[in-house]
Amino acid sequence: MTSPTQKAGYKAEDEAESYLISHGLTALERNVHFKTGELDLIMQDRDTLVFVEVRYRKNKRFGSPAETVTRSKQEKLIRSALLYCQKNNITSPWRIDVVAINDNPNSVAREISWIPSAVTA
């Protein structure tokens, strides 16, 4: 059974994927799991493979969604991306982006921020 938190996460991933597609990226895979962590979205941006970490917060009371990508989380993302590339023999350039989504109390629409190359090794 899916929890309300998981449902909110899947909805945020759907929104992030649609947003990135509208900006020219192509969706490849979702929710790829490794012992080191999960890759939320894997997209293609021209010749670059893009691993996307999606972060959602209902409000900014405890900081923005992007601020929740801690150094520990960044290290897990890097390890997972490296494992994905190794497993799939990827030799093309790649990067890790963050898409931060939060509810906007003044609007029905959510605020979406896309941060390309947000995580670097």
Rank of each mutant, 00 (worst) to 15 (best):
T70G: 11
R57T: 05
G9E: 12
V52E: 02
N89V: 01
K76A: 01
S3Y: 06
N31V: 03
E111T: 13
A27R: 12
S117C: 13
L25E: 15
I101P: 00
K76Q: 06
M1I: 03
P93A: 15
L28Y: 15
N31E: 06
T48I: 14
E38Y: 12
T120Y: 13
L39K: 07
F34S: 12
T120N: 05
I90A: 10
T68R: 01
A121R: 15
K35H: 11
D97T: 07
L77G: 01
S18W: 10
S107N: 14
E15S: 07
L83G: 02
E29C: 05
K58P: 15
L41H: 15
A27F: 10
R46T: 08
K7H: 11
S107R: 10
N89L: 08
L20A: 09
R30L: 05
R46L: 11
L83M: 06
V119K: 01
Y10F: 10
D14E: 15
T5M: 01
L25W: 09
I96D: 11
H23K: 02
F34P: 00
L41I: 10
M43V: 10
R79G: 02
K58A: 02
F62Q: 04
I115M: 11
W94I: 00
F62W: 05
A8Q: 12
K76W: 02
S117Y: 09
R71Q: 09
S92P: 10
R46H: 09
N59F: 01
E17A: 04
P4W: 12
D47L: 14
A8F: 04
E111C: 13
R71W: 05
E75M: 06
E38M: 08
I101S: 02
T120D: 03
S18T: 08
V69M: 06
V69Y: 02
I112S: 00
N59W: 11
R30Q: 10
R95I: 08
L83S: 04
A27L: 04
R30E: 04
Y56H: 05
T120W: 08
M43A: 05
I42M: 04
I78M: 03
H23V: 07
R79C: 00
T120I: 08
N59G: 01
R46G: 12
I90V: 13
Y19F: 12
D97A: 09
V69K: 00
V69D: 00
N106S: 12
I112D: 00
E17Y: 10
V108N: 03
R110Y: 10
A16I: 12
K87Q: 14
S3K: 14
T5L: 00
